[in-house]
């Protein structure tokens, strides 16, 4: 891997949540340089994530003049645990409550949902919040409301 190519690709913003990069979200898995050719490996967050096509185009644009191949891998399946600490901070700053990490959640058998007890309001910090809908503005988010400040907010679902 060459640092320059990696950094150029890593800086590509997520098309739906442009405050974070594809590296922050753990979508970027690998960048390999083979002569003049750059092979970038990415993984989708959700099966039907409509941002993947845009991400592929944006990766090619980030490496102008290069022969770029973008590979998509499914395994191991993406998890919100791959969101970096920097990514979590950026999400919180954009008022999107970051997901719980799997070691912070109640353990659950495979195939069942791991539910968090409460999500802290990214606006005022109160833990007194309620889930309005498990499905939000994008596949990866749920919709919440803070009882303390009254504001609705997005929460990045743990998966």
């Amino acid at each position: 891997m060459t640092r320059g190519e990696y950094e150029a690709v890593a800086a590509v913003p997520d098309p739906e949540i442009p405050t974070v990069t594809i590296e922050d979200l753990g979508i970027l898995r690998d960048v390999e340089v083979e002569g003049s050719r750059v092979v970038v490996t990415i993984t989708p967050t959700y099966s039907g994530c409509p941002a993947m096509d845009t991400i592929r185009t944006d990766i090619r644009r980030a490496l102008p003049g290069r022969d770029v191949e973008v590979r998509t891998v499914l395994s191991p399946a993406w998890t919100t645990d791959w969101i970096t600490d920097a990514g979590r901070e950026k999400l919180a700053k954009a008022r999107i409550a970051p997901p719980w990490r799997s070691d912070q959640r109640l353990s659950a058998p495979p195939g069942t949902l791991m539910l968090s007890i409460s999500v802290r309001c990214p606006n005022c910090g109160s833990p007194d919040t309620t889930e309005l809908s498990r499905f939000g503005s994008t596949a990866c988010k749920s919709l919440w409301r803070c009882r303390a400040c009254g504001d609705p907010f997005d929460h990045f679902k743990a998966i």
Binding site: Y46, G48, L74, L132, R134, A139, L143
Partner: peptide
């Protein structure tokens, strides 16, 4: 509205599975 969004999200997941 919330249900509209939920069903569309589930449909999108299924469409992604179908494509794979």
């Amino acid at each position: 509205l919330e249900e509209d969004v939920a069903l569309a999200n589930i449909a999108l997941d299924l469409l992604g599975q179908a494509r794979m």
